[in-house]
Amino acid sequence: DTLHTVVSVITAGNAASTALHEHFGFTYCGLTPQVGFKHGKYQDTETYALLV
């Protein structure tokens, strides 16, 4: 029983991923601006957490 928290970092603005995380009870923790680089431009990420 060592697992306590699951953390997920997703690309901001991805409505399907946001809905999936919220469906499974993840809580929005915050936005980190321009931390990832995908599709030729910098992307913001959103962090979600689930206490298990």
Rank of each mutant, 00 (worst) to 15 (best):
V6L: 12
V9I: 08
A15S: 11
T32Y: 08
H39L: 08
K38A: 13
Q34H: 09
L50M: 08
A16E: 13
E46Q: 15
F24L: 14
Q43N: 05
K38E: 11
Y42W: 15
A19R: 08
P33E: 11
V35Y: 06
F37E: 02
Y48C: 12
L20M: 12
K41C: 12
D44K: 09
V9R: 03
Q34P: 00
N14H: 11
F24Q: 07
A49E: 06
G13M: 01
H4V: 14
T18Q: 10
H39S: 09
Y28G: 05
A15T: 11
S8C: 09
T32Q: 11
L50A: 07
K41P: 00
Y28T: 05
Y28Q: 03
G13F: 00
T11D: 05
A16K: 09
G13Q: 04
I10D: 06
F24I: 05
I10C: 07
V52G: 05
F24C: 09
A12R: 01
A12L: 02
V52Y: 05
Y48W: 15
A19G: 01
Y48T: 07
K38H: 12
V7Y: 03
V35P: 00
H23I: 05
F24D: 05
L51G: 08
V7P: 01
A49D: 01
T47W: 02
G25C: 11
T27Y: 01
H4E: 14
L51R: 15
T27G: 05
V7W: 01
T47N: 07
H23Q: 15
T27A: 10
T47P: 00
A49I: 04
E22M: 15
G13C: 01
L3K: 08
Y28A: 09
P33R: 15
L20I: 09
A49L: 00
I10F: 03
S17G: 13
T45G: 07
K41Y: 06
G25Q: 10
T47R: 10
A16L: 12
L50V: 06
L3H: 06
T27V: 14
T11H: 03
T18P: 00
A15L: 15
A19S: 08
S8R: 06
L50S: 07
G25A: 08
G36K: 07
G25Y: 08
L51F: 12
F26E: 00
E46G: 04
V35T: 11
H21Y: 01
K38L: 12
G25D: 12
